[in-house]
Design a protein around this nucleic acid. Structure first.
Length: 415
DNA sequence: TCTGGGGTCCTAGGACCC
DNA sequence: TCTGGGGTCCTAGGACCC
């Protein structure tokens, strides 16, 4: 039997397909999920050149008939989970990459369900029948080949790459199909005459490394030469947790910065606390109105998970960044991220994280106990009544124009 | 003409230690 | 006093992915 047992299953035009599933009047029509930004486009819209990530205005220029739909984010989560659960019915060796795609290794279950190609076919039929969505599947010996296979298979298709066909399969495909090759790498490779995976495979590794750096050079050369050592990883925890908020064009002012950072710190810290985790490094990003951005970070002596402490550290970093750019009068985005997340917080670490530390040990940790009490009380109320039931009043004003929490949650990784 | 929000990984320079 | 080498951590920035 072939050792092509890795599957890559990828729901087609996912958000847009869900909208067309929920509202039959949208089927067969060019639609885009989103508003200011296209989060996903239906195949009918893609035919006009509309792409995910595109500005809404530009999308409408390309396709005047384009219909923008609001986004049923909870349905995306539900249907994505349902589709991936079907993959999981065949094998426990599933690596979920995002809401709408996953790798699976079916080597251990072919005696139950037949060869990989038959399993892929069964997954596609069941997702279509039980969830109502099209899912494309690539089947191959490695993750890299399976992923490219599913991309080539779209829409609503399946591609099996047999081991003896691998080199031929890769040879004429464009380099940007390789995972990790984006616009910059594509352009740099094009500058030395490399456009296809076949050309990259025979290029001098040294010149590729000079162009893209040693790590990327090595990785890309290996993939182009069809060496992919990656295995399926069934559980993966996030190494950082963050939140950001686009602000439009706002003045550099405490009345803008402080409540926004409060809100972001609240989001990040409550996620950390919910998982009993905390992190030592706090990073902020300030994006100016011309879309240039700067970051500032600080590694603390102890991990943090308290909203108030995170907000204070973040605010200090943001003002430091702004002091370095006195010419900038307006900002368009603020972000907070916490990294160096502790694997398993000890009781003492958690005390520090939550601001409970003894004043003698951590000078300046004012009102640690009341902070902890406040965070815990807010967490408990939200458990019962929802996230919006309680919070920092000053952030309420901008809630209406910000992205729904349900959409944010779609992209969050397991902490 | 002005892209949202959540992540990962890599690079390069400097500090610091042995 | 000057010089060399290796390792680790920290910080800022950037490419990339979904």
């Amino acid at each position: 039997m072939s050792d092509a047992t890795i599957l890559h299953a990828d729901l087609d035009a996912f958000y847009a397909s869900v909208e067309q599933l929920l509202d039959p009047s949208l089927r067969g029509r060019p639609i885009a999920v989103g508003g200011g930004v296209v989060l996903a486009a239906s195949y009918e819209a893609k035919a006009f050149g509309v792409r995910g990530g595109m500005a809404g205005r530009k999308a409408r220029e390309l396709c005047p008939e384009l219909i923008f739909v609001g986004g049923n984010f909870r349905h995306y989560q539900r249907l994505g989970d349902a589709a991936m659960a079907i993959v999981g019915d065949f094998t426990p060796a599933v690596e979920r990459i995002s809401i709408d795609e996953a790798f699976a290794d079916v080597a251990g279950c072919t005696h139950l369900f037949g060869p990989p190609e038959a399993i892929a076919d069964a997954i596609r039929r069941r997702v279509r029948a039980e969830v109502g969505l099209a899912i494309s599947v690539g089947v191959a010996r490695t993750k890299h080949l399976a992923k490219i296979g599913s991309q080539v298979a779209k829409p609503d298709g399946m591609v099996v790459v047999e081991p003896e066909d691998e080199a031929t399969f890769l040879h004429d495909l464009p380099v940007e199909l390789i995972w990790g090759v984006g616009p910059v790498a594509r352009a740099r490779l094009a500058a030395i005459g490399i456009a296809t995976i076949g050309q990259l495979a025979v290029a001098e590794p040294e010149s590729v490394a000079r162009l893209l750096g040693p790590a990327a050079g090595e990785k890309l050369t290996a993939l182009a030469c069809n060496r992919d050592p990656r295995r399926i990883v069934t559980e993966r925890r996030a190494h950082s947790a963050g939140a950001q908020s686009a602000l439009g064009r706002r003045p550099v002012a405490e009345a803008v910065v402080r409540p926004t950072l409060r809100h972001l710190a609240d989001r990040v810290a409550s996620r950390l606390r919910a998982k009993g985790r905390s992190g030592r490094t706090v990073t902020v990003r300030v994006r100016f109105s011309d879309l240039r951005s700067v970051t500032r970070s600080a590694s603390l002596p102890h991990p943090v998970a308290a909203t108030a402490i995170l907000a204070e550290v973040a605010e200090g970093l943001v003002w430091a960044a702004l002091r370095d750019h006195p010419e900038e009068r307006t900002i368009s985005l603020l972000a907070i991220s916490v990294s160096q997340i502790e694997a398993e917080a000890s009781a003492l670490q958690l005390d520090f994280a939550l601001g409970l530390a003894d004043e003698r040990l951590r000078p300046g940790a004012r009102a640690g106990r009341s902070r902890l009490a406040a965070d815990r009380a807010i967490d408990a109320i939200r458990d019962r009544f929802g996230w919006d039931a309680v919070g920092y009043a000053s952030v309420a004003l901008d809630r209406a124009r910000s992205v729904p929490d349900a959409f944010r949650a779609l992209a969050e990784k397991e902490l």
